[in-house]
Simulated assay, not measured.
Amino acid sequence: MFGFQTRTIRDLSWNEKKQVESLLEINGLTFEGRPDCTAVVENSEEKLIATASIQGKVIKMVAADPEWQEAGLSGMVISELLKYARENGIFHLFVYTKRDMADKFASLGFSELARTDAIVLMESGHPSSDDYRLVLRKNRTFEGSTNIGASVMNCNPFTLGHRYLIEKAAGECDGLYVIVVQEDLSHFPFSDRLRLVQEGTRDLKNVRIIPSGDYAVSRATFPTYFLKDKGLTSVAERQAELDATLFANLFVPELLIKKRFVGTEPFCQTTAKYNEMMKKVLPPRGVEVVEIMRLNDISGTAVSASRVRRAIVENDMEALKIMLPPVTMDYLRSEKGRAVVNKLIHEHDKN
């Protein structure tokens, strides 16, 4: 049809990436991350006129040349990515798209999870958000209480700062859900991060630890959070608003949350923007956003996971002792912990 050629590309060449970037820019989008596969449509002159990419289980960066909007090119590249996903055993997919593309994805079997003025997050396949709602219901702990709080944490790794925030938040509500980011894109594996938080808060009787699934600060909801280059401020802002909206749609009604606790953010602009977006999105949905001042060490500097990782690379044991609880110190001395330490050092030396 019209001499179109469709193909998929695993590793974009410099020239191919430039063409994709140009097409995205025309459509008000930005190239981000490192796609596992990109589908493109080219015309008879080998000009790229449509594109879409997939990274992990997320389809994104869907765009077509405005001159060919009526030719169904977006459907062609999306179909190629759905075929790629099936061939690679990916049966649960998310799509992060502009609002005007939502109906197209709905016709392909995607269901809407969250929507902002600019973007829509949708999913298809299983396990789905309906399955995760059942997980949340099974974890409902504070029945009968009206003052229930929640905090979402990555804990990469679990620090005294995290412990301080959890303890302070737990003191301000009847029950606190700590939702640990499950996306395994951090230096410390999710299973280890989850265990450290569980063991490090075991004495707090009104705290319940829950894995986030794919539905809080994940590669689907907030991919910029995991990028080394977080300079895409406008992109991070849109994604932060989307993630906060999904929290309001999913976690708030299932866990009857009335307060969302966050720590002040002096270091990371992306996390600071996330806090700002929560203050915009959650209060109209009946959730108070409570900001807790970060714990400072004896030098007056806020304790943070990024400072801990830097101290690990520098083998600064004194700094680690004043920023980490015993459970994390013990972990760093374990076989698993030493493997993470070596990985951090290797990554630092390589850069």
Rank of each mutant, 00 (worst) to 15 (best):
141 T>P: 00
40 V>G: 04
303 V>C: 04
306 S>P: 03
304 S>N: 10
350 K>H: 14
334 S>Q: 09
166 I>M: 12
117 D>P: 04
85 A>Q: 01
220 A>N: 08
279 K>Y: 06
334 S>D: 10
109 G>T: 11
150 A>P: 06
181 V>M: 12
93 L>E: 01
39 A>H: 03
138 K>G: 00
244 A>K: 08
109 G>H: 13
39 A>I: 07
12 L>E: 11
185 L>R: 14
124 S>T: 05
193 R>F: 11
258 K>A: 01
93 L>V: 03
68 W>P: 00
24 L>F: 10
327 V>L: 01
54 I>E: 03
9 I>Y: 02
211 P>C: 12
167 E>D: 15
9 I>Q: 06
297 D>L: 01
83 K>V: 02
338 R>M: 12
34 R>N: 11
271 T>E: 11
170 A>H: 13
150 A>W: 05
109 G>D: 11
277 M>G: 02
38 T>E: 05
262 V>W: 02
245 T>I: 00
35 P>Q: 05
38 T>Y: 02
101 M>G: 09
233 T>K: 15
149 G>V: 07
281 V>H: 09
70 E>R: 08
82 L>R: 08
231 G>D: 12
263 G>Q: 07
112 E>R: 09
111 S>E: 13
8 T>R: 09
244 A>L: 09
343 K>P: 00
148 I>P: 05
346 H>A: 15
79 S>I: 00
36 D>G: 10
81 L>E: 00
267 F>K: 13
152 V>I: 14
345 I>T: 13
69 Q>V: 11
268 C>Q: 10
226 F>H: 09
227 L>H: 09
205 K>Y: 08
85 A>F: 00
115 R>E: 06
98 K>E: 03
214 D>R: 09
349 D>S: 13
35 P>T: 07
162 H>L: 13
203 D>G: 11
223 P>R: 06
205 K>R: 14
155 C>Y: 05
181 V>T: 14
311 A>R: 10
148 I>Q: 05
35 P>H: 08
4 F>L: 15
91 F>N: 13
342 N>C: 10
300 G>H: 04
243 D>S: 07
342 N>F: 10
104 K>I: 04
125 G>R: 05
196 L>I: 12
32 E>W: 09
20 V>F: 07
184 D>R: 08
260 R>D: 04
161 G>N: 12
229 D>F: 07
258 K>D: 03
160 L>K: 15
157 P>A: 12
228 K>I: 12
271 T>M: 13
